[in-house]
């Protein structure tokens, strides 16, 4: 279970805004250590991060405000180091050390 490659982690920061912070302990910025690979041994990507956040970081039971049908809820923007994730390959983007991933909801607040 605890072999070297599995226990390796990537240090990243994850930010939530636009109302999403309320799902994550009302904290905007989280510094986390993300496992470097998923269970299948593939390098951690955004899809894996989203799953990881739902399992480990979310304090609110209303996961459906963050994910929908197994993907990020449409209407939530994802920025990878300030760039729209659509420019970075979306869920397939492989996370690098010290990346900043920002989730902004457009669904809240006028």
């Amino acid at each position: 279970m605890a072999d070297a490659s599995e226990s390796a982690t990537i240090p990243i920061t994850v930010d939530f805004s636009g109302g999403l912070e309320m799902l994550f302990d009302n904290k905007r910025r989280h510094s986390i250590s993300l496992p470097a690979t998923d269970v299948g041994g593939k390098p951690a990507n955004i899809a894996f991060l989203i799953d990881h956040l739902c399992r480990n970081l979310m304090k609110d039971p209303r996961a459906e405000l963050f994910v929908f049908d197994g993907h990020i809820r449409p209407g939530i923007l994802v920025l990878v180091n300030d760039a729209d994730w659509e420019l970075e390959g979306e869920e397939a983007y492989e996370i690098q050390p010290r990346d900043n991933i920002l989730f902004v909801s457009t669904l809240h607040g006028g």
């Binding site: 929908f68 049908d69 197994g70 993907h71 449409p74 979306e90 869920e91």
Partner: peptide, 9 residues
Amino acid sequence: DEGPVVSHK
């Protein structure tokens, strides 16, 4: 028909 969504896109 329904089934899991591969991607919303």
